[in-house]
Every structure is written in C-alpha cells, then in structure tokens.
Amino acid sequence: MVKNFLKGLAFGAVTGAAAGLLFAPRSGNETREKLIEELDEATELTNELNNSLNHFKQALSETKRTAETVIPTFQESIEKDIENFKFQAEPRVMQIQEQAEKLSSHFPESLTDVQ
C-alpha cells in the first residue's frame, strides 16, 4: 500500500512538473532542458525515497529479530523474579495474617471493656 502511494506520488510529481514546463512561456530548448532537469531531480528523489524505505525495512527486520531473542529471556527472568518474590512473600503474608487474627481475637475483648 505504501509502495503504491509512493509510486503515485512520484508519478504525480513528474506529471505535474512536465505539464508545468510544457505550458510555460519558454522556448522549446529551454523547456526541454528544464524538463530534463526536473525528471533528473524526480528520479533522484525517487531513488532516495526507495533507499530510505529499504533502510527502514532492514532496521525493522533487525528490530524484530532482536525483540524475538530478547523478549523470551526477559520474560523468563520476570517469571523467575515473580516466583522468588512469592517464595519470600508467602511466609511474611502468613505471619501478617496470624498477627491480624491475634489482634482481631483481642479486639472484641477491648470493645467490651470500653463499653
């Protein structure tokens, strides 16, 4: 889709330049020289655009390959960290729950004492 757009853009630029030159109030030789210059510039612009697009495609492919190698390693590391955190946190959570139960068992007694 982008390729078709770029082709259309280049074609439109060349056609517009050619039409402008053909209807310009210049002599035939001047018009032909100007047309040749414009076509050369349009060709150069198209080539630069194609080169940029190819570089972008290569960079995108390289980024994809890098992501395919880095993401699984990163994901494994995160999963290990989560397991380690769970292993360390579970005893602490149990201690907190035990303390909360002790406090709640003493709490109703303190309410009756206040009333």
Rank of each mutant, 00 (worst) to 15 (best):
F85G: 00
D81G: 00
A89P: 00
T31R: 15
A42D: 02
F5P: 00
E44C: 06
L53T: 09
F87R: 15
A19V: 11
E83A: 07
Q95K: 04
P72H: 09
I36T: 04
L53Y: 14
A89T: 01
A13V: 11
N51A: 10
T15H: 05
E98W: 06
E98Y: 02
V14F: 08
I36M: 08
T46S: 10
A18S: 13
E68L: 09
F23N: 05
L49A: 15
A24L: 05
T46L: 12
F11S: 12
E41P: 00
T63K: 15
L60K: 13
Q88N: 14
E62N: 10
T46I: 01
V93W: 06
V93N: 01
A67C: 05
E33T: 07
A10D: 04
R32Q: 10
N4K: 13
S52D: 08
L39D: 02
N4Y: 06
T66S: 12
P72L: 02
L53P: 01
P25S: 07
N84Y: 04
L6Q: 11
N54V: 12
L22Y: 03
E44V: 07
K64M: 05
F5I: 06
A89C: 01
Q88R: 12
P72T: 01
E62W: 07
R65E: 08
K34R: 07
D40S: 12
L39G: 02
L6M: 03
E41G: 04
I78P: 00
E48D: 15
A10V: 01
K57Y: 09
Q97H: 02
N4L: 08
H55C: 08
E30S: 05
G12M: 03
E83M: 02
G28D: 10
T63R: 13
P91A: 00
K57F: 01
L9H: 08
N50D: 09
H55W: 06
R65N: 10
N50R: 14
F11I: 04
L35T: 01
E68D: 11
L45N: 11
K64N: 14
R26D: 11
